[in-house]
Design a protein around this nucleic acid. Structure first.
Length: 529
DNA sequence: CTAGGGTTAG
């Protein structure tokens, strides 16, 4: 091993340590450094190797990071290498979760004689980012103003921080003052504009910027995705020349999956796997794809996706687990869903709601209530989806009183406005238990225009309880809302048939023929006749 | 050679 002071930068130890760090093997990088140090191979350890080691420390499990950071901090001090810009920056990055720690590191590293004013620039940029992440804009601004040297990264961080905090005017003002701009500068403003609902202005800047990076495209695509503008997102995606970017595919697949275009989501997924594209999916891709399978109820494809996932060695993170919980509960495999749910590293309102909805769908009332209470005990507030699950559990069990109480407390206690879905469940439950008038009243009280399916739930109840008069009224509402849907005609026909009103059945069939509606194969129409 | 701008679940 060479141990002359000039060679140690490119010594085999340094190369091995940096290689391990680059390959994402943090424990190996750290172990290699420790053995190089103990063996005395490097009388003066290489600062670049130390920077790589500190970077590796940041990839260790969170609880071990603080202790490791402190001991390497002391180690650097002892070696007289703390003020070296590279290990210093790596250490600053390690401390950047905690702005106080990052600040004290910089305070204890005073500007030494002969050191260039920019030598700790990267560390200061880290502290700046840390302050901005913690939301301390005044402190960030103060640091920015007193920095001896600022580069484009400092400016970008400041602009991004202001923009994300909604200080768009200040962000743009600063953006205009920048001595030099790169794609990230534009992206920072665009991202802020999108976050605060100025999608059109964001698009204008996007079209105006001189050079767009992939991040620019992806930021715009996901902006349109969140606004529900699938067309605009797809248009941009097709315009992208460099589609060799997993983030772009993930953004487009998520866009479709989140906006109810499950088939298109799977189409894009298939496209990214084609040999001429061949971008390997990750756990984020699979979260969206699993959600799409679940929306389609396509369990066969879902299972294929899962085996593909296993063959790629994809780890199940909490998002992916939650998507799988949803898929499995929809296919009635509630036990597998529960196993996945139990394996979550952290339960939140989304995962709880997925499991509660799954229990509701599968008639597991006690489990649904248990999960709801457990969630409350954990101080996680329920949301609209949690109540969809709970209400459908009560619906399944036919418990009218409990459902009514639940429906009421949703708005009074939890301040959640009932959606169409909640109303549909209540109408279905009230109707099935013979409270047809109450169900009708509830629909009339709805603050939104009832969809055909809400009336349809009540029409089904009219069929169950052979109520011709109300059935006719409800059916006309269904025809109004969904003129092309023959199912409601068939349902009304069944109501007439069960009351032996055959002339009305005949007239209805004639109307259907006139309106070019055919009866569905396998309907009970034939039996009724 | 670091630091800043991007993708996931009900």
């Amino acid at each position: 091993m060479p141990n002359s002071t000039a060679d140690h930068v490119n010594s085999p130890w340094t190369l091995a340590i940096r290689a391990a760090a680059d390959q994402g093997r943090p424990r190996r990088a750290i172990a290699l450094y420790l053995s190089s140090f103990r063996s005395g191979a490097a009388h003066r350890p290489c600062p670049f190797a130390l920077a790589a080691v500190l970077k590796s420390v940041s990839r260790l499990p969170v609880h071990t990071v603080a202790t490791a950071a402190a001991s390497f901090h002391a180690h650097l001090l002892r070696l007289g290498l703390l003020a070296h810009p590279y290990p210093h920056a790596a250490l600053a990055h390690l401390y950047s979760r905690d702005p106080v720690a990052a600040r004290s590191l910089l305070d204890e590293t005073p500007p030494a004689r002969g050191r260039a004013p920019h030598s700790l620039l990267v560390s200061r940029n880290s502290l700046l980012a840390s302050l901005l992440r913690s939301g301390d804009l005044p402190a960030a601004r103060a640091l920015f103003d007193q920095m001896p040297v600022r580069d484009v990264v400092s400016w970008n961080s400041m602009v991004a921080g202001l923009a994300k905090a909604g200080r768009l005017d200040r962000a743009i003002e600063l953006f205009d003052q920048m001595p030099e701009r790169n794609a990230a500068s534009w992206n920072a403003v665009i991202c802020g504009l999108i976050a605060h609902g100025h999608l059109t202005r964001a698009r204008e800047m996007f079209e105006q910027m001189p050079v767009r990076s992939n991040i620019s495209w992806i930021t715009m695509i996901s902006g349109y995705a969140k606004a529900g503008d699938v067309q605009a997102a797809a248009g941009l995606f097709e315009r992208m020349e460099n589609k060799n970017d997993l983030y772009a595919w993930n953004a487009m697949i998520a866009c479709y999956a989140q906006n109810g275009c499950a088939r298109e989501a799977i189409g894009v997924f298939n496209r990214m796997l084609k040999p001429h594209v061949c971008v390997l999916p990750n756990e984020k891709t699979f979260s969206s794809v699993t959600s799409a399978c679940s929306q389609l109820g396509n369990l066969r494809f879902g299972l294929w996706v899962q085996s593909f996932m296993v063959s790629l060695g994809i780890e199940l993170d909490d998002h992916l687990r939650t998507a799988l919980v949803d898929l499995y509960t929809k296919s009635g495999q509630i036990d597998r869903a529960f196993d996945l749910f139990k394996g979550l590293s952290k339960r939140d309102v989304v995962s709880y709601s997925a499991m509660i909805v799954g229990c509701g769908m599968n008639g597991k009332l006690n489990e649904a209530i248990g999960l709801f209470n457990e969630m409350s005990d954990a101080n996680i507030l329920p949301n609209a989806v949690s109540f969809v699950g709970l209400l459908s559990a009560y619906n399944h069990a036919g418990l009218v009183e409990e459902a009514r109480a639940c429906f009421t407390s949703m708005s009074s206690k939890y301040k959640i406005r009932p959606s169409m879905e909640h109303y549909t469940i209540m109408v279905d439950l009230l109707g099935r238990s013979g409270k047809l008038d109450e169900a009708f009243q509830l629909i009339m009280q709805m603050p939104m225009q009832p969809r055909a399916s809400v009336w349809g739930a009540l029409l089904l109840s009219c069929r169950l309880h052979n109520n011709v008069e109300l059935g006719e009224v409800i059916a006309s509402k269904c025809f109004e809302q969904a003129p092309g849907e023959s199912g409601y005609y068939i349902l009304l026909g069944n109501i007439y048939a069960s009351a032996n009103k055959w002339d009305k059945v005949r007239r209805l069939r004639k109307t259907m023929k006139e309106r070019c509606l055919s009866k569905m194969p396998g309907s009970s129409w034939v039996l009724a006749e």
